[in-house]
Structure formats: structure tokens, C-alpha cells
Simulated assay, not measured.
Amino acid sequence: MKVKVILPITSTIFNEEVVQEFEFYASPDTEIGMTNLSVGPESIESEYDEALCLPDFLAKAIAAEEEGYDAVISDCFADPGVKAAREVLSIPVIGPGEASMLYASSLASSFSVVTVLPNVISMIKNVSKLAGLDCKLASVRYVSIPVLEVQDKERLVHALYAEMVRAIEEDHAHALVLGCTGFLGVASELQERLKDAGYEVPVIDPAFASLQLAESLVTMKVKQSRLTYMTPPSKKRTM
């Protein structure tokens, strides 16, 4: 199968690591394609950023289906453009935020998300509400590190670990979700550190979760329901 990963940002600083991570996670018969936006925000840290990314994301998602891809992933935890793309595509469209929350909710009675900045807390809560999982969301915490600075892994892991411990002890989270797809390659280390400290809880990587869900849906030969995601009415639309 072929899965297209669309980074809904113009920055290319994550490209190499994104390709490496997705190819590592992918099944042997899965081909990964990746692209950035041509126009839009450098990163997504607000509703404004998300709105700016949508037109080009949708254009690239439509192009991916025309190129023969079997599924599309919007590689941002806020799941920008996912629901709109589901209306116009006939292949599964996956959001890492929704996917990782679904996995977390299947493993624990409650979960917390640890993300980048306070600006995105309401966006993440909206993802949980739309997925019907807000009743299991214990909290959304943040590390005060902008998206474009998360490549400092030592600083990132230290900050994430501290907030995860607080989420467990203060918010009663039984599972933890990394709340940014830029948090690459740290889930296993954090899970082991928490286990060593006496907290045996799952830590969900949103990129990994989104790919696993995409592969499962393609293998099952199912896609989004047309009763939920109806094809938009035919009309003139000026972009």
C-alpha cells in the first residue's frame, strides 16, 4: 500500500526525520510518500495557523489520491484539514491527534496530552471532543517549547518527563499522549523512564499511531462513512 504523509507546514526542518520515522514504523509492503505545503504557516501553533494551512493541504491531499495513494495522514496533532478532506477523498484520511487518543483510550480509563505551548490547548481539547473522547481526557499539559525548537531532544525529553509525572500524580492520567508530531523518537525513552520511576503506563507517539491506523483501515478495505462525511454539493468555489 501507499501512504502519503502531508506536513501541513512550510518548514522543512522535520522532513528527514519524519521520513525516517515513518519508514521505520511502516510494514514491509507499505510505501511512504511525504510532502510539505507550498504556501501556509511555518508551523501550527494556533487556530489562525491552522486556517492558513487548509487550502494547500486539501489540494495536496486530493493530488495524493489522484497519484494512487491508499491513505493520507495530516501530520499535525491538531488534525488540520482531516474532516474536510474526508468529504472529498475516497481513501482514508487520518489525523494523528484523533488516532493517538483512540489508542490511549483503549489502553486506559484516562489519558493526558503533553504538548508544546498553551496556545494549542483548546485545539487539542476540540480534537478530543470531536472524537468523543473528552470524557477520558484528564488534562492537556505543555512544555513551553515552540514547535520549531523541539529538535533539542535533551531539553525536550526533560520537559516532557516532568509534565508527564505531574499528569499522572496530579491529574490522575493512566496513559500519556505526545501532543505534537514533532516529538519524534522520544516515546519509548519516556515510557521506560516512567516505568523505572514506578509508573507503568503507555506513552503514545501520534505519528506511529496515525500510520498504524492508516495501514489497518487500508488492509480492512474501509474508509470514512459517506453518511458522516458527505460529498460537498457541486458549486463554483474560488480559491
Rank of each mutant, 00 (worst) to 15 (best):
V88W: 01
Q212L: 14
G95T: 03
V218H: 08
G68V: 10
I204K: 04
T12E: 08
E47R: 10
L130R: 12
S11W: 00
L178C: 06
Q224H: 15
A78K: 05
Q151S: 12
Y142F: 15
G182S: 13
I204E: 02
E16G: 11
E23A: 07
A84P: 00
F77T: 08
V127Q: 00
P41W: 03
Y199I: 04
K223V: 05
L137V: 08
K235S: 15
P28L: 02
T238C: 00
V93R: 01
E154P: 03
I124D: 00
P202W: 05
Y199G: 04
V18C: 01
P232T: 11
G185R: 06
Y25W: 14
E66Y: 12
I32M: 01
V203G: 06
E215F: 13
E42T: 15
E50K: 13
K221G: 15
V19L: 06
M164P: 12
I44M: 07
G97A: 10
E149Q: 14
V114T: 11
S74N: 10
I44T: 07
N36K: 08
S122P: 02
F183D: 08
G185K: 02
V140N: 07
V143C: 04
A26G: 10
V218G: 07
L54E: 14
L184H: 00
F111G: 09
Y69E: 05
A59P: 01
I91V: 15
V186T: 13
E50V: 08
T181Y: 10
K136C: 03
L130S: 05
A59D: 13
G198F: 04
E170W: 04
I44F: 07
E16R: 15
E215V: 10
V218P: 09
K221I: 05
S122K: 14
F57C: 11
Y48S: 09
E200C: 11
K235V: 12
L130Q: 11
E192N: 09
A85E: 04
S11H: 01
T115H: 09
S234C: 05
A207F: 00
L137Y: 03
S128T: 10
F24C: 02
S38L: 02
S38C: 00
M34L: 15
S234L: 12
T219Y: 09
V114A: 06
I168K: 13
I204T: 04
P80E: 12
A207N: 13
Q191M: 10
T231V: 09
E45K: 11
A175L: 08
V3M: 09
E200P: 01
Y48Q: 11
T35V: 07
E50F: 08
S216H: 08
F22H: 04
V88G: 03
P55Q: 06
Y229I: 10
V203L: 09
S90I: 00
R237D: 03
P28T: 06
P41H: 02
